[in-house]
Design a protein around this nucleic acid. Structure first.
Length: 153
DNA sequence: GCCAACGTTGGC
DNA sequence: GCCAACGTTGGC
């Protein structure tokens, strides 16, 4: 079992939006970064736990808990010429981008802001806090995961 | 295989 | 809106 942090811009797709989806599930499409793709293609497994993080917004931070709910499969938006995520170099026979589905798991009593995360020494090693980090999917340790969940409850 | 130019991310 | 940091692209 692994633990992850996945970023989303709440103006585009928030934790609340995930809860409102049919089956509270969303294919995590549109990732066009190879490292993040490799996590989804090679390392993320069903029932891995996810901190759902709001980025590029007024108060960035962890909004809730989700889980990985599918095996990896090709991101269909790469084949869709009308999609902003269309990739002319990808083919159905040889897809370039892969994803997993994400499903709502649990609410937290309170939002855990980035500001709060920065206050705790135990979280100081988080990849999220490393300078210049821009990855939209990051591994977190079990200790980090549990500490943040506890901060929100 | 180098590297300049360019695009994107994301906190502030 | 700014800008640092980083990833990607493409000419050579």
């Amino acid at each position: 079992m692994k633990y992850w942090l996945m970023k989303s811009e709440p103006d585009v797709f928030s934790f609340n939006d995930l809860k409102k989806r049919p089956k509270k599930t969303e294919p995590w499409n549109g990732v066009r970064n190879y490292q993040a793709r490799n996590f989804m293609r090679d390392e993320m497994k069903i029932d891995d736990l996810v901190l759902f993080y709001h980025s590029s917004c007024e108060i960035p931070g962890v909004a809730g808990i989700a889980r990985v709910s599918s095996e990896t499969y090709p991101d269909s938006t790469q084949f869709d010429q009308k999609s902003e995520y269309f990739d002319p170099k990808a083919t159905v026979e040889n897809p370039r981008w892969f994803l997993i589905d994400v499903t709502f798991k649990a609410d937290m009593k309170s939002f855990v802001s980035l500001e709060e995360i920065k206050k705790h020494k135990i979280l100081s090693g988080m990849k999220l806090l490393q300078k210049g980090n821009r990855l939209s999917i990051l591994p977190v340790t079990r200790e980090e995961f549990e500490f943040i969940v506890q901060l929100g409850n």
